[in-house]
């Protein structure tokens, strides 16, 4: 990668000892020097912290960190906690649905917008504005809107449909789906914007060729255009997956993890156990499981990306 820098030409190895005017290798060294703070910050802040957390997960730490090594005991405790099971499962239920619906909805919106409709500017503004809002705001808005006693259910019943029920927010078995609705509302526009930009980069002559060949448009999207955009779609999946793993704020604002702990997610589980329940070892074990999950996702998407490139 360094070989592509414009200043590398002609100089083998690029060591500071190469001949040249004083300013030349002075400037090269300056470029390295300015990166040092960032490198230190990252090494300590990211990788130091990650190592520290991982280390803590193997100790008997509870309210205070301790250095007594207990092996996988914290992990065993973690997996014996029903709350963790709910949180971990929710990550996949919420995550799977969130990613699937964001993608499907976002792609459909982008394709619809790509049909040369008028008012594209306004539509894009409407579809994308939720992304400017925080998950806290998103959660509060949907909490209010889906609140069974004041929101949508009340409204529809007021219209005369007395038997209309939409009380998912207060049902432990359904509340997690309301998170999906709010999440999709927040992020589908992002997928739309990314895919729409991708659709615009498709060579116009391909569309002309398809018309000469008499290929129906839906077939072109399915067989040609979306496969062409697969790198872009992969990026969308990765971005959305990051949201899922980090999705602390949406849960806090919308359900607080409830009813009970039915909408708990690992992100919230970890924060709660660090700061309000003061169970540092257990929280660290949970955090480490999150870390492994994200590494697996990255590994798979990296492999998928490489396979496409090959």
């Amino acid at each position: 990668m360094a070989d592509t820098t414009p200043f590398s030409g002609g100089r083998r190895g690029g060591s500071a000892g190469s001949p040249g005017p004083l300013g030349r290798f002075g400037a090269d060294n300056m470029a390295r020097l300015v990166l040092v703070p960032t490198i230190l910050l990252c090494l300590i802040g990211y990788y130091g912290s990650i190592a520290w957390t991982t280390g803590l997960s193997f100790t008997s730490s509870s309210i205070l960190p301790r250095s007594e090594f207990v092996g996988l005991e914290q992990y065993a405790r973690l997996w014996s906690e029903p709350r963790w099971h709910v949180a971990f499962r929710n990550m996949f239920v919420f995550g799977g649905l969130y990613i699937a619906f964001c993608l499907a909805f976002g792609i459909l919106l982008a394709i619809a917008m790509d049909q040369g409709v008028r008012g594209r500017t306004l539509l894009q503004t409407v579809f994308l504005y939720p992304i400017a809002l925080s998950f806290i705001v998103t959660g509060l808005a949907w909490q209010w809107f889906l609140n069974p006693t004041t929101g949508l259910q009340e409204f529809v019943q007021g219209l005369g449909f007395e038997n209309f029920r939409f009380d998912w927010l207060s049902r432990p078995d359904r509340a997690v789906y309301t998170l999906v609705v709010a999440g999709v509302w927040h992020s589908a526009g992002l997928v739309m914007a990314i895919v729409f930009a991708g659709l615009g980069s498709v060579d116009g002559e391909i569309w002309r060729a398809s018309r000469v060949d008499g290929v129906p448009k839906w077939r072109m999207y399915l067989r040609v255009v979306l496969p062409m955009l697969s790198p872009v779609l992969l990026v969308c999946v990765v971005l959305l997956a990051m949201d899922v793993v980090k999705s602390y704020e949406l849960v806090v604002a919308m359900t607080g993890g409830g009813p009970g702990y039915s909408t708990d997610l690992p992100a919230k589980f970890v924060v709660d156990h660090y700061f309000s329940r003061a169970n540092i070892g257990l929280a660290s074990a949970a955090a480490t499981v999150m870390l492994i999950t994200i590494l697996v996702i990255l590994l798979f998407s990296g492999l998928a990306g490489r396979r496409r490139a090959a």
Binding site: F7, G45, V245, A267, I280, A283, A286, M290, I294
Partner: peptide, 26 residues
């Protein structure tokens, strides 16, 4: 500029962006 391991540096930085806060917070 010619920075040794520039690609690795950037990758290391970006990996950090993908790790949940929760893993580093304590």
């Amino acid at each position: 500029w010619r920075v040794p391991y520039a690609g690795l540096l950037l990758a290391g930085l970006l990996l950090g962006a993908f790790i949940p806060f929760q893993v580093m917070i304590y």
